[in-house]
Design a binder for these strands. Sequence first.
DNA 1: GCGATCAGCT
DNA 2: CACAGCTGATCGC
Length: 694
Amino acid sequence: MSSFGGQMAEYPTISIDRFDRENLRARAYFLSHCHKDHMKGLRAPTMKRRLECSLKVFLYCSPVTKELLLTNPKYRFWETRIVSLEIDTPTQIPLIDEASGKKDEVVVTLLPAGHCPGSVMFLFQGDNGTVLYTGDFRLAKGEAVRMELLHSGGRVKDIQSVYLDTTFCDPKYYQIPSREECLNGILELVRSWITRSPFHVVWLNCKAAYGYEYLFTNLSEEFGVQVHVDKLDMFRNMPDILHHLTTDRSTQIHACRHPQAEEYFQWSKLPCGMTSKNRNPLHVISIKPSTMWFGERTRKTNVIVRTGESSYRACFSFHSSYSEIKDFMSYICPVNVYPNVIPVGATVDKVVEILKPLCRSSQSTEPKYKPLGKLKRVKTTHLDSEEEEDVDLFDDSPPVPLRHKVPNQPALHPEVFPVIVTSQNQSEKPRQSTGCFKEESLQISLMANYVDCQESNSEGEEELDSLASLQGAVDPETPQQPPQQQSDVDVPQWEVFFKRNNDITDDGLENVPSSTEAGASQSPRLFSDSDGESTHISSQNSSQSTHISEQGSQGWDSQSDTVLLPSQERNCSDTSVNKGSYRPRTKENILASQQEQNILCPTKPCSDLKSGDPDVNIVPGVAEATTLSGGKHTPEEKGLLSYSTKTDSQSSSDFEIPSTPDAELPKQEHLQYFYEKLATGENIIVGRNTKAHS
DNA sequence: GCGATCAGCT
DNA sequence: CACAGCTGATCGC
């Protein structure tokens, strides 16, 4: 849960994701996504009064967030005061002090955060430097590299501070299986069940929050079965989600909820009350998406773990893992980092201790190789001042035209412009292109996931497993009763998925973690812990071992009650996570869509541009940049960037990552690098790529 | 009657 | 298994 107070040191007159206390005086508000813990004070009477008195204060968020927010009547009073900003479109925001009339400005860019529909990060640029507020995010390793607007002049921007989602900034979450792996695990489990008969149904035991939509849409797409939910009107303008949901209970996939759902489930009753269909009793399994549950496990597990006769845990996360956070940070390499979340059992100091070494001031003067960064055009190698004083250098690289879009409500808020933010921005100081990227091996996804799992964090909320009920469970280290073929029809065929422990290629398993986590990957992957014997010791470093003792008290005897499914199948068909383009279908967006396809002529001249550039030449520049946005990249670049899943540049998926800016044809040595990676089976090009070409 | 806060529960 | 909520009790306005 976010404990961010709402204000950033650099831009204290704006408030983000907090709307109470001192934030009531902010000159502009920003909402990163529609989760309640980021909306504190947003519907309070004090805020309502503030709006009535201050007519120039607005809330800025993504179009999807605006849509989701306004679906709730409690927030309707914001309706005329929300400005939705397109993703990846630098926009100038006026910051007006209504008492004194003083006016400042800041340029904000929304970057996709991959956390839930509409979720974004905010990149602010202005007189006090460039800062990034991540909100909550899940970005896979290397995704920051492909974010065009994090770059300038072929390099990552000079970022002063990052306000970071540190939810899983704890080595126990060192590795969380990728979205695709988790999704595929769930897909296969669901497939194994619902294909048995029309009366076999699954209940996805999801929390009441946005973030599971891509799971629903992928399941629906894969099986041609809509997902039953309690409410769907918030998606009324998001057909890519809406079409996969239903309020009709007669479907085989349910994500409905009820306060007594767990009790219902004991009696094969779905939360919506269904127990039978056409007088045939339903056979229900529950699948509970979890992250922390997996994080607590010290032994390797799969992305799917059976916790009871009909109960499963599925690994699922909408926050970045420890290693994803570190990858992100070491690429961004800011001067400062401020954690937005202090995980339980941790302290600010602990978290900062982990992150500070990834910041610039901590970097050794010795340049480090930055493999992916080298794909970008490296124009000049400035001697980077390791000290971050106000060296007011100018970036002399030519302005890079960036994609451009118009604001959604140009008429409503004439002062808000999309602007070209180039390296001319004074806050952009050149930085040495040899960055802080630490290469870590990324082989996990290539490892066999057919692994044993013997822990059962059982707290009673799962079914209590009698031994008999475990007949499906496979535990290589515990002698098994031969499976009794009772109710066979009610248990998925584990044999299909499970491979014996000795099928694992153990060579991929890591050794002991080193505290110098330079190159070698760490062992505590959530589901491929080192094998066996000594593993009561969590493979993390000892400072992290607090949970071990608790763990020990949970009883290993009860840990044989889990069954796993392989996650594998990364290349599995078309389970694209990026499929949903959650753009609300509103008038303004349709307009924007059309404009994106055409040459863009902003309706308002950017007379107020702060770049101090009275030169309105910026407008043709905009038009030109936008023209390119339909096909921003040359064919060569497209080929190079093929790991960017989307070809449809018109849809703004929440999980879509823009392509690398300024990419050029790889040089021989770069190719060599990739070839080596590929040869060693490393997951350098994210798996979706394979699909894009298949 | 509403909101804020907290315990308890997923 | 504190991912993001909900409900219900209590207290203050």
